[in-house]
């Protein structure tokens, strides 16, 4: 389908004013709002922690080995995500599906491991209401987990609808996967900051 026939302009080629496609501008505006959301929560955490007379030590309170495993899983998923986009950009649809499927699978593994971690905490009656530490821990990791679920949903949509979209407009699908990849990388980058702040300090 040619871009002139499409209802939304500048999908496949950059807008002359912004220098990027409208989709990429849109995802970056969305990610900017996400930076403000997580930035506010990180600031809240720092203020609560510095204003508190005593604060639990991360490694003594939380499960560092499980969180390390989850960090590995997310780093691997970002590699498969970018490989999925690169496969489309080089016209290899089979590899695209394989890598995107792996990315979605890694997201699910992350959630399962997080579920074990939460289950262990609940068994010991460490609920969000138990202390300020657990309140901010569950808020930050829970919100991050919701973002992972959102990313999995997007990836699964492109995994199962990919063939139709590829046959209709390959360039557009490649751009959409790039936008999905930017979102997935942002979610992974948030974890790269969350992990040391919550689990190690």
């Amino acid at each position: 389908m040619s871009e002139s026939a499409s209802s939304i302009r500048y999908i496949n080629r950059p807008h002359p004013v912004t220098g990027v496609t409208n989709a990429k501008l849109g995802i970056w505006c969305f990610l900017a709002s996400e930076v403000m959301l997580f930035g506010a929560l990180f600031s809240t955490y720092l203020l609560l922690r510095t204003g508190s007379a005593s604060w639990p030590h991360g490694p003594a309170t939380l499960n560092v080995p499980l969180a390390t495993l989850n960090t590995l899983v997310l780093i691997f998923s970002s590699v498969t995500m970018v490989m999925s986009w690169a496969s489309l950009a080089t016209g290899n649809f089979r590899k695209y599906r394989l890598y995107l499927g792996l990315t979605a699978l890694m997201g699910c593994v992350f959630l399962v491991v997080k579920g074990f971690e939460y289950g262990h905490k609940f068994e010991h009656h460490h609920f969000p209401a138990a202390s300020t530490f657990y309140a901010i821990y569950f808020t930050l990791t829970g919100l991050h987990g919701l973002h992972v679920i959102g990313g999995i949903a997007v990836n699964l949509y492109f995994l199962f609808r990919g063939r139709v979209l590829w046959q209709r407009d390959p360039e557009r699908l490649t751009n959409r996967i790039e936008c999905a990849g930017l979102y997935w990388h942002f979610v992974d980058l948030v974890w790269i900051f969350l992990f040391p702040i919550l689990y190690l300090l």
Binding site: S78, V82, L182, F186, L189, I192, F195, P196
Partner: peptide, 22 residues
Amino acid sequence: MSLRAFHILFIVSAVTLAAGFG
């Protein structure tokens, strides 16, 4: 920023985290 540039930034962050954490 393109996905490739963001991926490079992410991997640099991951290398820093992995080395520091190690």
